[in-house]
Design a protein around this nucleic acid. Structure first.
Length: 233
DNA sequence: AGCACA
C-alpha cells in the first residue's frame, strides 16, 4: 500500500525530504540513519529541479531494504516524515556489479564516468561514505567491542552519554537523527570549540544505556567508529 | 509530486 505495487528492490526511494538540507549532509545523514538495516552500497541525491527532496539508498540485500521501508516509514527526518518506497529500477552500481550495466542506453560518455566513479571510490575512504564501495563493514548498531575498556575508568551509568571520535563535520542534527530513535531521547549538545565530541541526554540512565548499546561503534564515516561512554557527573 | 546514478 504505502509502497504502492512496486516490487521489492534492494534500493529504496525516499521522498518528502527537507529540501533545505545540503546534499552532502543529506547523504551522510541518510547513510547514518539507514546503516542500521544493513550494508549500504550507495546513496544518491540530486538537487536538480526535478529531483530535490528525493534520494535513493542502495543496500547490499533486499531484506535490508524491506526492513527499512517498513520500519522507517514516516520517520521524522529534518522535521519532515519520510515517504519510503522501493525504487522502481535497479541502481547502476548494482547493474554494474552484476555485469548488466549498459550505459549506452542512457549516457554517452561512459568511459569517463566509469573512471570518475572508480577514482572517487578510492577517495571515498575519507570523504562521504556514500560513494560506491563502503570500504569495510559499516558495523552499524550491533557491532562494537572497541569502546572503552582498558585505559580510562568507566564512569557509572548516567542519563547523559559522552560521544567521542566523531568526524569533524558532524552536526548536532545528524546526531539527533541517530539518537532520537531511542526512547527517552532529550537532546544533543555539542561544543563549537571542541569538534569530535558530543553529549546526548536521555530521560534516565536505563534509556541512555539502551542507546549506548545500540550505537556503540557506529560509523558515521568508515574511519570514525563512535566511542560512547557515560558522561561524568 | 517528483524514480537517478554530475
Amino acid at each position: 500500500m504505502l509502497t504502492g505495487d512496486i516490487p521489492p528492490n534492494q534500493t529504496i526511494y525516499i521522498k518528502n525530504l527537507n529540501e533545505k538540507v545540503k546534499k552532502e549532509e543529506l547523504k551522510r545523514s541518510l547513510y547514518c540513519l539507514f546503516s542500521q538495516y544493513g550494508r549500504i552500497l550507495d546513496v544518491v541525491a540530486l538537487k536538480t529541479e526535478k529531483l530535490r527532496g528525493q534520494a535513493w539508498v542502495v543496500f547490499s540485500e533486499v531484506t535490508a531494504a524491506s526492513n527499512a521501508v517498513r520500519q522507517m516509514q514516516g520517520f521524522p527526518f529534518y522535521d519532515k516524515p519520510m515517504r519510503i518506497q522501493y525504487a522502481k529500477t535497479k541502481s547502476d552500481c548494482i547493474a554494474e556489479a552484476e555485469g548488466v550495466y549498459d550505459p549506452n542506453a542512457k549516457k554517452k560518455k561512459k568511459q569517463e564516468e566509469k573512471a570518475e566513479r572508480k577514482k572517487r571510490a578510492e577517495e571515498a575512504q575519507q570523504a562521504a561514505p556514500a560513494n560506491g564501495k563502503p570500504a569495510e563493514t559499516n558495523g552499524g548498531p550491533t557491532s562494537f567491542r572497541q569502546g572503552n575498556q582498558g585505559a580510562q575508568e568507566t564512569a557509572p551509568p548516567n542519563n547523559i552519554l559522552f560521544i567521542q571520535n566523531l568526524p569533524y563535520e558532524t552536526t548536532s542534527m545528524m546526531l539527533q537523527v541517530l539518537f532520537q530513535q531511542y526512547p527517552g531521547f532529550r537532546e544533543v549538545r555539542m561544543i563549537e570549540a571542541k569538534p569530535g565530541i558530543a553529549f546526548v541526554e536521555f530521560e534516565d540512565d536505563v534509556q541512555s544505556s539502551m542507546a549506548m548499546q545500540a550505537l556503540q561503534g557506529f560509523k558515521i564515516t568508515p574511519q570514525n567508529p563512535m566511542a560512547i561512554t557515560y558522561a561524568k557527573k
